[in-house]
Design a protein around this nucleic acid. Sequence first.
DNA 1: TGTTTACTACGAAATTATTCGTAGATCAAT
DNA 2: ATTGATCTACGAATAATTTCGTAGTAAACA
Lengths: 129, 129
Amino acid sequence: MKPTDSELEILHVLWTNGPSTVRQVYDTLSQSRDIGYTTALKLMQIMYEKGLLSREEDSRSHIYTAAVSEEDTQRNLVDRFVETAFRGSASKLVMQILGQHKASREELDEIKNLLSDLNRDAGRQDLSD
Amino acid sequence: MKPTDSELEILHVLWTNGPSTVRQVYDTLSQSRDIGYTTALKLMQIMYEKGLLSREEDSRSHIYTAAVSEEDTQRNLVDRFVETAFRGSASKLVMQILGQHKASREELDEIKNLLSDLNRDAGRQDLSD
DNA sequence: TGTTTACTACGAAATTATTCGTAGATCAAT
DNA sequence: ATTGATCTACGAATAATTTCGTAGTAAACA
């Protein structure tokens, strides 16, 4: 299931704020962009049908929850993105980002540490390109 | 302007093979997926109108060339992707990829070297999150 | 109780992307 | 010169996404 851009926006609100009504999602969303209430509602209904959201129908205003985790979703999106934009070469993507200085020093250090760990048992490393 | 997935496929063919006719692009493309000749033609015509491709109309079969570089395009796509999928945190994206072991040992080493260079003059580093 | 307010459901318009068929022109080879 | 292959241009069907209006219902409250 690939969420569309609009769907991702809604997922982000739910991941950040936790289970919410359409009204709450709408309030958050409308701060950052122009959107009607029924548009948000419709989107969330569609996402519910797709299985991206679950909902409690107890009260009159339903309470929606993200039915997919942020981690799983991001992993899927990254896989797809690497495939379409970088022809499967994940390392080219990483190089591209790092070359752009799009990380703070602390983050670079953190990444470096992760790399050391990975290098330590590189015997079973995937060979993606 | 953001190329669609289909447009990216065509750009990749042109980046890889250099200036080509519709027929040549079609031959390459049809090896990996089901597509009609006039579909490829139409796509390339649209991309020409959008400015994604340029073309030589000298001969009867026009010769198309990518009008945008692979690097620029990838940079744009990455920026957009980081924004929509990772809420602007490029480092989270990198961590996500590295955590997935989506790079060979050689590539990891290469990345490590790049990181060392970056760390060396980290004083002027961007702080993206 | 009657009116306003807030909610869901649903249909459908508007937009964008993808697909292909057909028409007409050009070229190559008989 | 006629035929057949190949090319472009173009219109239009299809599909996916995003948008919002309207109708109906339930709740709140004056």
